[in-house]
Every structure is written in C-alpha cells, then in structure tokens.
C-alpha cells in the first residue's frame, strides 16, 4: 500500500518498507539482545525537551523496534507523552518547545534541517486520547488523508482495507455515508485508527487511545493492536499499567526527578521487555511504581 500514496514533496526520502535495520546496540536493560527480525526504527539518544525554561524530559535514550508495540508508562508529568510527540515532531507545533539530542528514524536524523515535518507525520501517524473524527462521513474520514496525499488508486478499496484492518468494516460497511459522529466512542476510535493507517504509515503513535472508552471497547482496541503490529510499529502511552502489560512487547518506565532547582523533570528509569518489567524489573523505582508503592 506504500506505493499508492504519491509523495508531492519527497523531502524525507524513505521507503520505509524496504529500509534495512539500523545497527543495533543494547542501550538499557542488559538482557535486551539485538533482534534481527525486529530492527530498530527509532534510535533515540540523549533526548531532552524544554518548554521555555521548563526541562520536561531529560537525557532519554531508547530504541523503538519494527513490528513491536512499545509502551511508555509512568506517573503524570513524567514526560511520556512529550517523548511520544517527539516521534512525529508534534512538539514543533508548540512554539516554546525545544528538542535536543538525537532521534534517528531509519538512520535519518528526524530533526535534521532537510526533513519536512509534514512528511514525517505521513510516515508516523497518531491516534489521540479522545476519538476525534472529522465532521464528515465514515468514508470521508478514512479517505481524507490519502486524498490530500494525492492517492490515485481505488479509494473504495483503500477505505475498505483500512476499515478492515481497524476491525470496523463489518460494523460500518452498510453505512459508509453516515456521519462518523453517529458511531459509538469505541467505533469512533477505531475509525481514527483506520484514518491513521489509511496513509500507509510506518509507525502508529497512540496517546492513551483507550482511556476514554468503556472496558469492552478498550479490549477491542487492545486486540486490534495485536493485529496491527504485523504491519506497523506501535508506540503507546498509557496510564493503565495492565494495558501496557497486556499489549506491549517492550515497556519504558518514566518517572519524575526533582532537580536541584526544585524543577520537576521527566526521566527514563528502565526500558526492557514487558515480561521482564512486570515480573522482575531491574530498578527499584520501577518496582515501587508498578506494585503501587510509589510516592
């Protein structure tokens, strides 16, 4: 599906489906081993984010791997959403945000001067906490992105494929012209996922994608994610630790450090396989947080 979208402004020259792996190194968690079938797509090194004078995220280094689900967890204010937004340069939209350090995406400096943020967001889609369908029909919600991108193939096929992958097709195939607002919250969120994957992204970022949904809709989204990771790499921010445990392959635990100045800064404490984080974490701070002894 990647070749269907005409790139009108091919500044970020990546055919993400064919890119070979970035050299793998173990950064955090000594039991993590290079995985040839899950090469790194993001290589984050010494990431710092400031909002004006506020140091939001300090010295984060980690890798996001292909066709895996990576969960970012931690208490409020730990910077996990800030880190997530760095992956598709959403922080560029905040005037006072300043990003330093290195994020290499398939080996390309994501914040390089030649990289077009719009192209970045075409490769790296995002699903937000609250379902935010456009005030349009179900069909048009999915078709909107590909149309903008100059898609020239069969739009009907593309819409069906995206809705099928988002596990929504069977529920909406007879009412594609109906308003997206007529759908339930869970259906609207799956529509947003269909919309995100309709432009054939490489990565889907999810910021609390199920926090506004009921438990059944939440489980449907979680199950959907397991299917989506066959085609996409997923990074999810979640406050729900059990959700991170259920859906993700790797988990990054962030917390808040108090600087000498009294300022609170988000730091990465531990990044490892989810099974290890939730059975035998390497850091006491991780264990205290996930077992409810946080304070």
């Amino acid at each position: 599906m990647g070749s269907r979208v005409a790139e009108s402004k091919p500044v970020l020259r990546l055919d993400v489906r064919d890119v070979a792996s970035v050299p793998m190194t173990v950064t955090i968690g000594e039991r993590s081993e290079p995985a040839a079938d899950h090469p790194a797509i993001f290589d984050v090194d010494g990431l710092n984010v400031h909002y004006g004078d506020f140091h939001a995220v300090k010295d984060v280094s980690l890798q996001i791997r292909k066709n895996e689900i990576t969960a970012l967890i931690g208490p409020s204010g730990c910077g996990k959403s800030t880190v997530l937004r760095c992956f598709n340069r959403m922080n560029d939209l905040i005037e006072i945000a300043r990003v330093s350090g290195s994020i290499r995406y398939h080996g390309v400096d994501l914040y390089g001067s030649e990289v077009d943020p719009v192209q970045v967001r075409r490769h790296i889609g995002m699903v937000f906490q609250k379902p935010n369908p456009f005030p349009k029909s179900i069909y048009d919600n999915v078709a909107f992105g590909p149309k903008i991108a100059g898609f020239e193939g069969s739009m009907d096929d593309l819409v069906e494929e995206a809705l099928t992958k988002a596990a929504l097709w069977d529920e909406v195939k007879d009412k594609l012209d109906g308003s997206a607002y007529a759908l339930s919250g869970g259906q609207q969120q799956r529509l947003c996922i269909a919309r995100a994957i309709a432009t054939s992204p490489d990565v889907v970022l999810m910021d609390e994608p199920a926090s506004a949904l009921d438990p059944i809709a939440t489980l449907r989204i979680e199950d959907l994610m397991q299917g989506l990771k066959e085609d996409y790499s997923i990074v999810i921010v979640t406050h729900n630790m059990q959700q991170a445990a259920r859906v993700s392959d790797r988990t990054a635990f962030f917390t808040v450090d108090m600087e000498q100045t009294g300022q609170r800064t988000g730091v990465l404490v531990e990044f490892d396989e989810t099974s290890k984080i939730f059975t035998n974490p390497g850091e006491t701070r991780t264990e205290d947080y996930i077992t409810g002894r946080f304070g």
Binding site: M241, Q242, A245, I277, T279, N280, P281, E287, T291
Partner: peptide, 9 residues
C-alpha cells in the same frame, strides 16, 4: 489484584 513484579513473585 493482578499482582506484578515482586508481588507477583
């Protein structure tokens, strides 16, 4: 309670 980490062990 769905225990984790040292609580699970």
């Amino acid at each position: 309670q769905t225990p984790v980490a040292i609580d699970l062990r």
